[in-house]
Design a protein around this nucleic acid. Structure first.
Lengths: 149, 149
DNA sequence: CTTTAATGTAATTATGTTGGTTACACGATA
DNA sequence: TATCGTGTAACCAACATAATTACATTAAAG
């Protein structure tokens, strides 16, 4: 199981917006930081906005803003916003119902995969964007400057 | 997220072999239960064998056998055998090193994704094939019969 | 020793997902 | 009203997955 890069990019995007402290950030500026296309950033921002994590300021001087305080945005919120469930996939084609194992293993897998997903959710919920932003600044050693360099 | 079905199929395969109690099982019989092609089963069995979980009995009357007791095969062993790391992907293209965030977020993501992977590993290691086989039999209500129906 | 049954593995193909790109309609601000 | 920026659709290249076919190899049975 490999997640898409959307989760990592979404965290990057939210970190970028967070460090601007309420100033709207253009998708083009974020794209420059992420090293990708503005439309890719807007697509992910669309998912984050649908989940109530960000909001868009249209028009001149507009851009993306946080819709919630950084301490109230968990990695679980972000993960659910940008990654398609399920995390653990069952058989592409259902197993043979005429076989003892094929007939009985699906509920066992569903239950076990549910337990694994719940464990992952717990781990994801334990970190907020406030933690991430704090670690990025700690890693940099210097505070973020308005020019972003 | 396009998760592979290999993990679910590998558990199915090992359950099948376990229920035969030491009798070699042909890839064709397993494929019939999983509802797929014998070559697909053999490919997954190859990964499981490389991880030391199964072994092949070549020639007439041959097939797949467990290489360890069921209680000593954890879901973590299986997951690592058939899924490619990493579970959580970073940016496809590295972020812009000329940007404060692009320059400092990667170590933060690596550390956080490491923590998430470790949490998932803990959850995976908590279940063994003995648990899975027991639940399949409990779900069936009747013990497994030699004809597999 | 020969036949037969089974695995191991490579090559090919179909399908789906991801992310990059372009394009353009829509909304908001100056 | 002109301009700026978002939202979103359409398209494409790259990649992953799994189904399929084919065949060399190995071991048991006669």
């Amino acid at each position: 199981m490999a997640t898409s890069t959307r989760f990592a990019v979404a965290i990057h995007i939210l970190t970028h917006i967070s460090l601007r402290h309420g100033q709207a950030v253009r998708s083009e500026d974020i794209a420059h930081s992420v090293n990708t296309n503005p439309a890719v950033v807007r697509r992910i921002l669309g998912a984050l906005a649908a989940a109530g994590l960000t909001q868009a300021q249209l028009g001149q001087g507009g851009g993306a803003l946080l819709a919630k305080p950084v301490a109230q945005i968990t990695l679980l919120d972000i993960y659910r916003a940008v990654e398609e469930p399920p995390t653990f996939a069952l058989h592409r084609v259902p197993p043979n119902p005429d076989c003892y194992i094929g007939r009985n293993i699906i509920p066992v897998l569903e239950s076990e995969f549910g337990r694994l997903s719940a464990a992952l959710d717990d781990a994801l919920a334990a970190t907020t964007m406030a933690d991430i932003v704090g670690r990025v600044e700690a890693n940099a050693g210097t505070p973020y400057r308005a020019d972003g360099v």
